[in-house]
Structure formats: C-alpha cells, structure tokens
Amino acid sequence: MKDIEYAAARSVDEAVGLLAARGDKARILAGGTDILVQLREGLRDADLIVDVKKIPELVGLSHDAKRGLRLGASTPCYRIYRDAKICAAYPALADAARIIGGWQIQSRASIGGNLCNSSPAADSIPALIAHDARCVIAGPSGRRTVPVAEFCTAPGRNVLARGELLVTLEFPPVGDGEGARYLRFIPRNEMDIAVVGAGVWVKLNAAKDTIAAARIGLAAVAPTPLPATEVGAWLAGKPATAATFAEAGDRARRLAKPISDMRSPAEYRLHIVGVLVTRALAGAVDRARGIVIGHSPNGQEH
C-alpha cells in the first residue's frame, strides 16, 4: 500500500474538518473491511484515512419503541444481530448483518460502511430500503437527512459531498403486524457476494391476511441498489398469499436491469429476482404473523 496518514477523529466536527480539508484525498475508515482492500488493490486512492470509530455518536445503537432505532454509522454488524430487540423489530437488518462476510468481518464491518461503500450488491442496502431507513449526514454546513433509497448514485458512489460524513442511520418505529426479511442468493452458502439480494418489509392488516403496505429493495440488479417502489405500492391491499408473492416477484423482475459478470449471467439474475422477492415476501409475512423462521442461506424454507 502507498504511504498514507492516519487520524482518529474524536468528534464529528473534527472528522468533518479533516475530510473537508483533504477532499477526495481523504477516506473514512470505519470497519476497514472494504477500504483497506480497495487501497491495497489501487481501486481507491487516499493520502489520509480518518478513523471514525472513536467518535461516540458513530458507535452504538439506541432503540425506543416510540422513536425507533438510531444506529451509529460505524457500529459493527455483530452488535445488531446479537441484540434480541433489534432482531425482533428490524429483522431484515439483522438478516443482512449476519451474512456480511464471516464472523471476523462482522466484528469490524458496519452497516454505515456497507452503505457508504455503495456497492450495487451491498447486502445491507436492500434491508435499509425495506426498513425505510434515513441517513443523517454531517458536513461543513451542518446536518442533512437523506432517505437510504436516494443515497447511492452509481457503483461505488453516493451523495456524500466533500467534507461530509454519515453519522447515524434512523429507522422508524415498528408497530404490530409488521415483518421484514432480507435474502440474498449466492452459489456458496456464506462468504460470497450477492448474485441478487432482496429486502422486503410488510405491514399486514388487523386480520393479518392482507398486506396493508410493503417496501422492497433489491441488490445486484442495477448500477445502484434498487427500491422497487412500484411493487411495494402494488402489494398494498393484496391478500397475503403465495400467488401474491409470486406476482410481486414477477413485477420486481420487470424492474431489474442486471448485468452479466463473473458472479452470474444477467438472465439468471433476472430469474433469481423473482424467486428471492417471492421467498422474502413469504418470510416477511411469516414474521409479521409472529412465526419464527429459519436461517437457511437462500430462504429455501419457503
């Protein structure tokens, strides 16, 4: 790796100051599991890395049934899936956190880092879209909030401007009858990049037989993680049945524009979108009904 400077910021202001001064020659270090590999392989360039793990606001999570979840951007993944309350309230988020790399990666990697790396195949982003998370961004001119669905702009690129830093992710409170699921398809069962990822959130009616509202996010099917907004809207009012899930899968497939690469041919990706959306919907509905579901790698239980 080329010679580089390291600074551990103690506050958001300090981090913003360092990032603003160095512009695109400064890179944020959270868990480091992407940025260190990219710097080593010359995929990204930097003269300064700003470690943000020592900023209290960026580490940790606070959950409140009324206000929802605030997740520090550099909180390591393991803290999410080890927290029973978070797993119950934001299960798609927990699903994603549990399968980003292996345990060694999850000890370090963060959801904020996964988001800021802005890979089209990122596991957490479809889950964040499904949970309707919002990004709290600090910058030289103060703070702003951006929906996760609007955060990524191109492969590896996002809305963060010079000097800006993702501070927290905010999740709305969760009510009765809600459920969510993130599923990804990979040829192996672990340690792989999504061929397709699908995050789904549903809210059922009081009888729990009809979908009142739904949100779907997709990974690895477009240059950025894709909010399947039309499909979510279509689902509202539909019976929570296998036929509905399958049609939603079909509709999601029509939105996807995947590429062919070493991870999969495009035609296969397109097919898998349908399969995963169908399965993830079934899983989310089960959870909304209070059914505990298994952790088979590709959601084959459905």
Partner: peptide, 8 residues
C-alpha cells in the same frame, strides 16, 4: 475474532 490483515 478479526482478520488481522484488515486491521491497521
């Protein structure tokens, strides 16, 4: 557990 290759 961490990968010490990915820790500075």
């Amino acid at each position: 557990p961490v990968n010490s290759c990915l820790v500075l």
